[in-house]
Amino acid sequence: NNNLQKAIDLASKAAQEDKAENYEEALRLYQHAVQYFLHVVKYEAQGDKAKQSIRAKCAEYLDRAEKLKEYLKKKEKAPAKPVKE
């Protein structure tokens, strides 16, 4: 299944970028992956078990994406670190 594979690739890339602390890219990839997964669940025949696993995993990705979003927002607002003389 092409879309499922694409979704898995995106999620795996997201996790990689997340670990590499490229949080903006990771956020984008998690959101993209979830879109693909939901499309697969909705329009492409999957077993119930597979659908459940995908939905559960999507919830995890969205949760992580939310944390990344919060972090990026805080970081943007935070003043630059003062430099010690």
């Binding site: 996790a15 670990k19 077993g47 119930d48 078990k49 597979a50 696993s53 992580r64 972090y71 670190k81």
Partner: peptide, 21 residues
């Protein structure tokens, strides 16, 4: 049955995000 196989879905990293001062 087809489509009921366990899916290997990538895990979310467990690392905490850095603190923003």
């Amino acid at each position: 049955t087809q489509g009921d196989a366990d899916l290997e879905l990538p895990e979310v990293p467990e690392e905490e995000l850095p603190e923003v001062p």
